[in-house]
């Protein structure tokens, strides 16, 4: 895995151009938390992303929508370098977190993933107790030294994930014994426990029933106060409900990115229009 070093002028040119289009569309004044410029991803000979430019704003929820196979998840997994675990996957372009190149030489994936957490499509609690599931991250990062501190981290994370009241009497029971919706909130609590700055969610509700989904959506809205959230979803109502910004992906391109309301009421691109009105996808 290596970032191909483009010539400096190329990169600057691309960045300036992208920045111009972005600022034109951006009315929101929130700070830019993460930024992608000309990001290309290849799986072996196959190109999955064809040069993505995108700003991710602090304390906002960004929804990535688009038909299956359009590269939403691939882009999401670039943001915390989860693509590193996939063999013959190659990432080109610039990705920054707080102005720092996350594919740069100085960044370690371990530190990066502590700052950019992730929640997956299918709930994947570890085969441990509920308590140990939450304590896992803080433990490996050495964030809590005393038992009391750890108890507090676990309780706070579970509270913020809205799961504390349901599980406080059975913290020692295995996390795999919870229901699907509870498991997913456990995974969110687990991600929160390491105090990340950004949380990436890859279709977090696709394996859940409507009630559990509503729970998670409420939760996402609350979490926005403290975290920057990027969520991939196939459910356009969900994108409309939880996000402030929406980016539409199609065939490896980012077609347009704007305020969620704009995208859903007044899309500029024909393809976006087609997708959100259900003509294809």
């Amino acid at each position: 895995m290596s970032v191909q070093t483009e010539t400096l002028t190329d990169r600057t040119a691309a960045m300036t151009q992208a920045a111009m289009t972005q600022t034109a569309a951006r009315a929101d004044t929130a700070a830019i938390k993460m930024l992608a410029r000309n990001v290309k991803v290849y799986y072996g000979p196959k190109q999955a992303l064809k040069g993505i430019n995108l700003d991710i704003l602090e304390n906002r929820v960004l929804a990535l929508i688009g038909p299956s196979g359009c590269g939403k998840s691939t882009f999401l997994r670039c943001l915390n370098r989860m693509n590193d675990t996939i063999e013959n996957c190659r990432v080109d372009g610039t990705l920054q977190l707080d102005g720092e190149d996350i594919y740069g030489r100085m960044i370690d994936t371990v530190q990066l993933r502590a700052r950019v957490g992730m929640v997956f499509q299918k709930p994947n609690p570890f085969p441990k107790s509920i308590y140990d599931n939450i304590a896992y991250g803080p433990r490996i990062h050495g964030m809590a030294t005393h038992r009391d501190e750890m108890d507090e981290v676990v309780q706070k994370s579970l509270e913020r994930a809205g799961l504390w009241n349901e599980v406080k009497d059975r913290l020692k029971e295995p996390g795999t014994g919870l229901s699907g919706g509870q498991q997913q909130r456990l995974c969110i609590a687990r991600a929160i426990a390491v105090s990340p700055e950004v949380i990436l969610m890859d279709e977090p509700c696709s394996a859940l029933d409507p009630i559990a989904t509503a729970h998670i959506e409420e939760l996402i809205d609350e979490l926005r106060e403290n975290f920057t959230i990027v969520i991939v979803t196939h459910n356009m109502q969900q994108a409309a409900r939880v996000s402030q910004k929406t980016a539409f992906f199609h065939l490896g391109d980012m077609v347009e990115c704007d305020d969620t309301e704009e995208i859903f009421t007044n899309p500029r691109d024909e393809r976006t229009q087609g997708y959100i009105t259900g003509r294809y996808g």
């Binding site: 989860m82 502590a114 570890f126 896992y136 995974c187």
Partner: peptide, 22 residues
């Protein structure tokens, strides 16, 4: 399942931590 490994890597665990603890 790979999803368990992903979950652990996603929290910033190293390979050996993931193997030993998950």
């Amino acid at each position: 399942p790979q999803s368990l490994r992903d979950g652990s890597y996603g929290l910033g665990a190293t390979k050996s931590e993931t193997i030993r603890q998950v």
